[in-house]
């Protein structure tokens, strides 16, 4: 589930779906519902997790496995395309909101969770935050717009390292790379985000929105190309086999990249 509050121009959107805010159809529907009701005159959106484990562990792999296992292989492509189109719609809308969006990240920020965080204008990371793209282990690439969005912010060398090794990096490294703009102590992320929201409230709304529109563009062509590549790879046998291994694993540490 997700939950949100609104007060004096500030939305606080809290992800709270155990075990670690995995993104499936229910989360997607909740995010769509939130976006569709948003007051475009609000000035700040704070996006965070209410779970100790972290910000978000990525796509709901168990739901994806069930969805693909329950239908014949020839239906995988339309099913995957529908899901990925809906995801991209939500991510693009979050990315382009006429509010200043602040992501507060702690603990696990993996895969689709990393991609969700990358829609935010400003990322505040608590020291425990770790970022990674483990998708190659599943025989796919990140499919929620992550690589095109990351390319807006950081150099190709680090992106290749993250994408091609699947390794995770900590908050300090993410800040040094330009991915995260503020690093704070554990539990202090929300305080820093609220302080930023209070500052944002002082600005002229027209100038604030124009500044964001000027500096932050959607990488439309790359997002489209990523979507096509994702759907093509996801139809291959590697994904289903990897999902089966994940779902049937008795390893206590399945999320370790």
């Amino acid at each position: 589930m997700i939950d949100w509050t609104y007060d004096s121009g500030v939305y606080e959107l809290t992800l709270a779906t155990p075990p670690c805010n995995e993104i499936g159809t229910a989360m997607l529907a909740d995010l769509r519902r939130f976006i569709d009701q948003i007051d475009r005159d609000a000035h700040t959106l704070i996006l965070r997790s209410g779970l100790r484990q972290g910000f978000c562990a990525g796509a709901d792999l168990r739901e994806l496995y069930r969805g693909l296992s329950d239908v014949p292989a020839e239906q995988h492509a339309p099913l995957l395309r529908k899901f990925i189109d809906e995801i991209h719609g939500v991510m693009d809308d979050l990315d382009m909101l006429p509010l200043t969006t602040v992501g507060v990240v702690h603990g696990v920020c993996f895969g689709g969770g990393f991609e969700l965080a990358l829609t935010c204008d400003v990322l505040i990371a608590e020291k425990s935050a770790r970022f990674c793209f483990p998708e190659l282990r599943l025989g796919i690439i990140p499919g929620f717009g992550g690589i095109p969005r990351l390319r807006r912010d950081v150099g190709n060398g680090l992106i290749r390292d993250l994408l091609l090794s699947g390794r995770s990096i900590n908050a300090k490294k993410a800040q040094a790379a330009g991915l995260v703009s503020q690093v704070v102590a554990g539990g202090e992320g929300i305080t820093a985000a609220r302080a930023l929201a209070a500052q944002t409230a002082k600005f002229d709304p027209t100038a604030r929105k124009a500044a964001k529109a000027f500096i932050k563009k959607l990488p439309t062509d790359e997002l489209l190309a990523e979507r096509e590549l994702f759907v093509r790879l996801a139809q291959g046998p590697a994904l289903l086999a990897a999902l089966k291994r994940f779902v049937e694993s008795t390893d206590l540490r399945p999320y370790l990249p």
């Binding site: 100790r52 603990g107 425990s128 770790r130 390794r167 995770s168 990096i169 300090k172 540490r253 999320y255």
Partner: peptide, 20 residues
Amino acid sequence: FQAVELISDVEDEFDVELPD
């Protein structure tokens, strides 16, 4: 999840990078 926290703690404490 706790293992991920431990890796971050270790990297901070010893000022190293530890690829997973």
